[in-house]
């Protein structure tokens, strides 16, 4: 959705147009849910946060500043809610639950081997993501999952662009190390069982 259409929808929604509100929800719910799920590692928490974030946004649409992207505003509110939930529940990452939830519908055309390979990749991704620090994880997710440009991430996190790039670089390095460590462990396990 381009910015002009998004702003038009926001204006309509702020005027009480429920169809515009639903269009905004449908346009952003998947990406927001994916982001919060990867950040929190808890599907129930992610669902609650997504709903709460949208309700808050809908209630305060009149305050939306047209200079920014709607998604930036929405993600900022969701991040605040996520931080609050961490304070209440404590940071924990349930990789199995994330894996099951994301693998709930593998699709009809996939054979068993392919599904198995996908499951392994998903499991590895969950392990790697959970091994990152909160800020590195957020930057990696915003860049690679949400396809946000560096400038938008920097504005969203209120840090310089150089810091974002540095976090990205270190985050990828850490991910690579975690992937290597995980593969090494798998290989050792295979050797033990064979």
């Amino acid at each position: 959705m381009n910015t002009t259409r998004e702003h038009a929808l926001v204006r309509k929604a702020a005027g009480g147009d429920e169809e515009a509100m639903e269009a905004l929800i449908r346009a952003h719910q998947d990406s927001l849910y994916a982001f919060v799920l990867r950040m929190s590692g808890r599907p129930e928490t992610a669902e609650d946060i997504v709903q709460e974030a949208f309700v808050r946004v809908l209630k305060n649409l009149a305050r939306f500043d047209n200079r920014f992207r709607f998604s930036t505003w929405l993600f900022t509110i969701a991040k605040r809610l996520y931080m609050n939930s961490i304070q209440k529940l404590g940071p924990s990452y349930d990789t199995q639950v994330v894996e099951v939830r994301s693998a709930s519908d593998p699709g009809p055309g996939l054979n068993t081997a392919r599904t198995e390979a996908d499951r392994n990749v998903r499991a590895l991704l969950d392990t790697v993501i959970s091994g990152l620090g909160p800020q590195q994880r957020e930057i990696i997710l915003l860049f690679h999952q949400q396809n946000w440009p560096i400038a938008q991430i920097a504005r969203h996190l209120q840090i310089p662009k150089g810091t974002v790039k540095s976090h990205l670089h270190r985050g990828r390095k850490r991910m690579r190390r975690l992937i290597q460590a995980s593969c090494r462990m798998n290989r050792q396990a295979q050797e033990v069982f064979s």
């Binding site: 509100m21 929800i25 719910q29 994916a34 309700v55 809908l58 590895l124 396809n147 690579r176």
Partner: peptide, 30 residues
């Protein structure tokens, strides 16, 4: 890295999670 293509990890990361529709619940709450 040990047979795992890292690009697969990022492709999986970028893959959208579909299937959950919060529209009705959000509108009801609103």
């Amino acid at each position: 890295v040990d047979g795992v293509d890292e690009s697969m990890i990022f492709a999986e990361l970028a893959r959208p999670l579909r299937g959950l529709d919060f529209t009705d619940r959000i509108m009801q709450r609103w």
